[in-house]
Design a protein around this nucleic acid. Structure first.
Lengths: 239, 239
DNA sequence: GCCAATGGTGCCAAATGTTGGCACCATTTA
DNA sequence: TAAATGGTGCCAACATTTGGCACCATTGGC
């Protein structure tokens, strides 16, 4: 049984029975407990709201409303979203552009046929250049695709982030920092983080970060990152 | 790229372009010819009706009525969309950014509460700069917000567009043109249009257009705007 | 306090599925 | 005929999924 079919089977079972347990579902779809738990997690990522409660009398419950939350967007809105993603891709932010694309794909799929026709006519008029002739990106590498998942958990769970950093001179250092903010100044992206080893804030150019990994352990506190009013945060950023 | 994403990309491409070839799709989704053929076969199994014809002039064509699904986005996807819109706003494309924002608002509204919480935590870590230090936009004005609605009807209904244009020297002329395409070369946007008064194509920098208005009346025909393969369309654009 | 049932996570080796070449075929149009 | 196209079979390299295991946290009943 393919992953997709199993996911559908799980949703159907939850919808039919109202509530169930991981062990039950595992028997039903003929997969292991572990696999069902992984599936549940995947379904939640896809937007299904599945309530769960550990302990006796608990179990899994599918929120029936979660399945029907379709956003109705106008053609122009979808078009504007498409453009923004296309611009971002053109600016070189491939990992994020890929993710945004995946989201857009879902939106487009939900678009009724007549709106789709309008969108096609719009798109026929659109060309997006690969490079901006005014931006010097000659010394710039692509951001690592692995950055996104690592950042996601680091930011959401406030965990320290370890990585290799290569500065403007080319020397590489190993860092473990507490991520505080992302700073986007197109076409460059920066990570603003507290460096415990240096007891100070540091800025890191994202495209110079490699081998990111989330450090499991005690979560740190948020620190205030403030830019004084009217003062550009650009000064002092790594070139 | 996962199988699922590739399938979606293929469906989207077929929907957008109406027709395509295996070789084209393979390039687009960065997979081999063989893989695309397998994907097509899988999509057909899933219920997509894809017409195909071998030989010159043939190609693949997706029956538009074949599938309907609902959109369910993950937090990361919404986040990526938010970032792309934010970047676009930072690059100065205010009218479109506003529209994209409106679309995103609808999506966010459809997001279940717990995902919304995650998203907010993400957003708390995000600052988007107003200017790129590497891009010289000193001589560039903002695009008029009125441009978008006028363009929407002009493009969709193929109506002529009238506006005031200020060239690089500062002299202002009144134009009535037939919009053919938009060309985005960040950070500048261009309107590619047929100018009947000059019986030729003209490029207009969007930020130099003011007082746009849609001319009600007979709709014009689309003209082919083609860039030769490998030839940059940048040459000859207004500075 | 203790226990069993439950959801949840990390890890790893084995099983399974995917991918991209390659050769080859059939059809169509110039 | 030649070139472009869709389509199939095969297979080794590669990537992903799976299930088992140990373990943790929470819950409710005894």
């Amino acid at each position: 049984m393919s992953v997709r079919l199993r996911h559908e089977a799980i949703v159907r079972s939850l919808r039919r029975n109202g509530t169930s347990t991981v062990a039950n579902l595992a028997t039903e779809v003929r997969a292991s407990r572990r696999t069902v738990l992984r599936d549940i997690s995947a379904l939640r990522d896809e937007g299904f709201v599945i309530h769960s409660e550990p302990g006796r009398g608990g179990g899994l419950q599918l929120d029936p409303q979660s399945v029907q939350t379709t956003a109705r967007l106008s053609v122009a809105e979808v078009f504007a979203l498409l453009i923004s993603v296309a611009s971002m891709r053109a600016a070189g932010n491939l990992p994020f552009a890929g993710l945004a694309d995946a989201g857009l794909a879902k939106i487009e799929k939900a678009l009724p046929p007549d709106k789709m026709r309008d969108l096609r006519r719009f798109l026929g008029c659109l060309y997006v250049g690969q490079l901006s002739p005014l931006v010097d990106i000659s010394d710039r590498e692509a951001m690592e695709p692995a950055l996104l998942p690592a950042f996601e958990s680091a930011f959401l769970q406030r965990q320290s982030l370890g990585f290799q950093y290569r500065d403007a001179k080319g020397s590489v250092t190993s860092r473990v920092v507490e991520p505080q903010a992302m700073l986007i100044l197109p076409p460059l992206w920066y990570l603003v983080a507290w460096d415990p080893a240096r007891t100070d804030f540091r800025h890191f150019r994202m495209d110079r970060i490699s081998r990111p990994e989330c450090i499991q352990g005690a979560s740190f506190r948020r620190r205030r990152v403030q830019f004084a009013d009217g003062v550009s945060p650009i000064r002092g950023l790594p070139r």
